[in-house]
Design a protein around this nucleic acid. Structure first.
Lengths: 338, 338
DNA sequence: GTGAAAGCGCTAACAG
DNA sequence: CTGTTAGCGCTTTCAC
């Protein structure tokens, strides 16, 4: 049975209020009383009842994070890294993280409603923003606090941190062009994802600068998993006039692409180049290692969380809209066109 | 501003009590009143205040999950899969998941204390049990509910679900022996981990059956990351009398081992065999694909969560101790000894 | 069938 | 400096 304020008060023969005040760090408590209370609280292992405190303060010191996952085996390191960033930052500020896993759709929104309506959390972290995002619409409508990892082309203003995917993909595409590649394929992320827009724009910008373009048969779509990268690449390799380089919407699909290519006996980085996006930990250690666009997921997680906490605390944000420049990392999976 | 019971009561001109009872599904409410209340609640978007409800009911409908992570880039898919299992099962029972990321140590225990003491959660999920596990000791001492993923050799009884790592590694080792391997190396998990004990036992059992053993220079330890698998394998390959097969404590280290081997120009599955443990999603798609011991992480996550919810609801567990038989999956990373 | 009142554990305004 | 009192929003006796 947990220790309550009442127990300490009884034990010390003083009132509950005094105990509360002593522990709350109020100045109008006798020095000696405070000492006794603090000692007793420590000895008895007192922790304030969270529900009672929340009910009174109308704050939960909890942040909601709903992972828009698809299936049981969602192995994208992106999630673990964001989670680590959020979790570590939150705990530094004495905040807890309430997490749910809900695939995009009605059940997802229902969780947002439930958490917001029941005041379960003080605010939300949104990730993988979508071009038309029901979460953003709902949360801004009902005036709930949130900060997003990623932008959205919707006509709603909200605070976010994102990376410049256009610039990242532009650089990646330029890299391939400079290596002599002209027939470049792109395995795009799902088109609902906001970042799909920027990444595509970067590719097209670079291609157009060089009088090239993305032919429809080389512009395909995956679902961000290795499997889809593998599948789509197999299809690409079966084309009459197959590409000499493959840009991928994320690293996971790029790794799938590498698998598919290796299976046909071709050498990645020599016969065919592959580029990813994200720079997940494994990218540096795959064989061949992956040329990719680095995105500081963990740090962005921390930053997004910090911004949300500032909003919750009522502080002003210095910057509401942050777009970071990603770093392009050249490794072994790209080489001159043959 | 969220809708409260009071608002509905006012709106309908009836008492708060009646609204509460109507929504609570009590039988002593006029049929018509109930209808009106339900309609109003839906229209007004009512969700009960979680803190108030919890304070009253002395239940939080929340499960605590503290991820014992080490650094920012912890990409082990194990975590995402467990999390998905826990999250999906919990939401099916109307439970929420409170998550924290704390490296093993005092801060980890502090989080357990805080959450248990402040009644923030109804129970805990423990993962990656350790041979001497401070979490288990603390939680069983203070009588908190928990269910673990994995056993522990401590002298404490608690409910768990785990896999038979000994059997799994025995099968894996036998497989190598049957392929003619005699000089087998083992990259072990950290020795604090309870599963390190079982996995090692399985290896030794199989070796001894064949009059072989694990020489100290081939018995090394990693920290479960690809990097460590890579590093240790490099070291193994530099030995005068290097092994013909490498068993790894998990898939991540096995993937690192494959990278290291490929970097020296050797062919995995032909010149050198590699075996992992876990069967993470990527294992089937790596190149070469990984021979490994399959562990149904997602399902175990669900099951552990279900057991905890049963305990919370005061139901009896049919089985307190579950040890599942893992499946051995032969793929391309193993082949005959040369 | 419905309402008034008490209380979950805590904080905060107000006396003394 | 300390104690009494009220109230956060809800559930749950207990009267009517």
């Amino acid at each position: 049975m947990p220790v309550r304020l009442k127990d300490i008060a009884q034990h010390l023969g003083i009132s509950i209020t005094t105990v509360s005040r002593a522990l709350g760090g109020y100045s109008d408590v006798a020095h000696e009383t405070r000492q006794r209370v603090e000692k007793a609280a420590l000895e008895m292992g007192y922790y304030p009842d969270a529900s009672a405190q929340k009910l009174q303060k109308q704050r939960t010191d909890t942040i909601g994070f709903i992972i828009p996952t698809f299936g049981p085996r969602f192995a994208d390191p992106f999630w673990s890294e964001v989670l680590a960033g959020l979790g570590n930052e939150a705990s530094q500020h004495g905040m807890d993280l309430l997490v749910a896993t809900n695939p995009p759709g009605p059940s997802e929104i229902e969780t947002y409603q439930r958490w917001a309506g029941s005041r379960r959390v003080d605010g939300f972290i949104l990730v993988r923003t979508r071009r038309d995002d029901a979460r953003i619409r709902y949360l801004s409508n009902c005036g709930a606090l949130f900060v997003a990892y990623g932008r959205s082309e919707m006509d709603v203003d909200f605070p976010y941190v994102g990376v410049d995917g256009q610039r990242g993909m532009y650089t990646a595409t330029r890299h391939l062009i400079d290596l002599g590649h002209r027939r470049i394929a792109y395995i795009a992320p799902p088109s609902e994802a906001q970042f799909s827009v920027h990444r595509l724009a970067g590719i097209q910008e670079a291609l157009q600068e060089n009088g090239a373009s993305l032919p429809p048969e080389l512009h395909l779509q995956g679902d961000l998993t290795q499997e889809s990268g593998y599948r789509v690449t197999k299809w690409l390799l079966a084309l009459d006039h197959s590409p000499t380089a493959v840009l991928c919407g994320n690293d996971l699909m790029a790794l799938g692409a590498i698998s598919a290519i290796q299976e046909t006996g071709l050498i990645v980085g020599r016969d065919l180049s592959v580029v990813g996006f994200d720079d997940i930990p494994w990218a540096a250690h795959s064989h061949p290692s992956l040329t990719t666009v680095h995105q500081p997921v963990y740090e962005i997680g921390r930053r997004v969380c910090r911004m949300l906490i500032q909003r919750i605390r009522g502080e002003d944000l210095q910057e509401r809209h942050i777009v970071l420049q990603p770093k392009f990392v050249v490794r072994e999976s790209t080489g001159p066109a043959t």
